[in-house]
Amino acid sequence: MDARKVLVTGASGGIGRAIAQRLTDDGYQIINIDLVEPRNPVSGEVWIKADLTNVEEARTALEPLVKSGDVLRIVNNAGFIRPATLENTSIEDFQAVVDLNLRAPILVTQALMPAMRQAKFGRVVNISSRASLGKELRTAYSATKAGMLGMTRTWAMEAAADGVTVNAIGPGPIATELFLSGNPPDSPKTRQIMETIPVKRMGTPEDIAHAVASLIDDRAGYITGQVLYVCGGMTAGISHTA
């Protein structure tokens, strides 16, 4: 088995692209399931075009990976936001966010978990969000990202005896290309956001990629069921309860 393969969903841009680059630099081969083709593929990258909100399309995309049985690391990164107040959150938008942010990670992890159990080794990293703790205009998004934390802890307990670790990362404000397109660095809104961050800067996609690289490593076998907030200290004063 080639234990150096990593499936990263939604790796064609933003945080996913930074994860793909960092893990490639660390010697892994990236398998990227995304509806959009990466503009700058990393060395050895395999791109599988698929809409993960479509159950049959997702299963078809995963089928060759299941048959190969050698993909023992997953980064469930694909996700999106439909920002709206509670009153303006439509059931259709809510369902769309659930389909990608929650159902897709279930489909992906279900498909590849048997190979991990058989190999007595596996790494799963779920990309959640600081918004799981609550954020305005994020009813659908915060609900799914909080749900991802519950799944992370549950999967960790179920898979631990087989050498499979499952952890989550909760990014704070990250200066992705999409974020910066609506929030220029010198805008009052962006400066206001930075004032709420103890380290007084926006996070970068590379900050998240570094955290992923740590948890995906062979040597991270004693860390499971945890959430690591990569948020510049924004959650430091928040009390976390089960």
Rank of each mutant, 00 (worst) to 15 (best):
residue 3 A to W: 03
residue 4 R to V: 00
residue 6 V to M: 01
residue 6 V to N: 02
residue 7 L to T: 03
residue 7 L to D: 11
residue 10 G to S: 09
residue 20 A to W: 01
residue 20 A to I: 09
residue 27 G to M: 10
residue 27 G to E: 08
residue 28 Y to W: 07
residue 28 Y to S: 01
residue 28 Y to N: 06
residue 29 Q to R: 13
residue 34 D to R: 00
residue 36 V to E: 13
residue 43 S to P: 11
residue 44 G to V: 12
residue 45 E to H: 10
residue 47 W to K: 11
residue 48 I to Q: 13
residue 56 E to T: 14
residue 57 E to D: 15
residue 64 P to Q: 14
residue 67 K to F: 11
residue 69 G to C: 06
residue 75 V to Q: 07
residue 81 I to S: 12
residue 89 T to I: 02
residue 91 I to Y: 14
residue 95 Q to A: 13
residue 97 V to H: 04
residue 98 V to L: 14
residue 98 V to G: 03
residue 101 N to I: 08
residue 101 N to D: 15
residue 114 P to K: 05
residue 115 A to Y: 01
residue 116 M to V: 08
residue 124 V to N: 05
residue 131 A to W: 04
residue 143 A to E: 04
residue 143 A to T: 15
residue 145 K to L: 04
residue 147 G to N: 08
residue 151 M to E: 08
residue 160 A to G: 06
residue 162 D to H: 01
residue 164 V to A: 00
residue 165 T to K: 00
residue 166 V to I: 01
residue 170 G to T: 09
residue 175 A to H: 03
residue 177 E to A: 12
residue 181 S to N: 12
residue 182 G to I: 11
residue 188 P to R: 04
residue 188 P to Y: 02
residue 192 Q to E: 15
residue 196 T to S: 13
residue 196 T to V: 07
residue 198 P to Y: 03
residue 200 K to T: 03
residue 202 M to I: 01
residue 203 G to R: 05
residue 204 T to K: 10
residue 209 A to W: 05
residue 221 G to F: 01
residue 225 G to M: 06
residue 227 V to H: 02
residue 235 T to C: 05
residue 237 G to L: 11
residue 237 G to K: 14
residue 238 I to R: 09
residue 240 H to A: 09
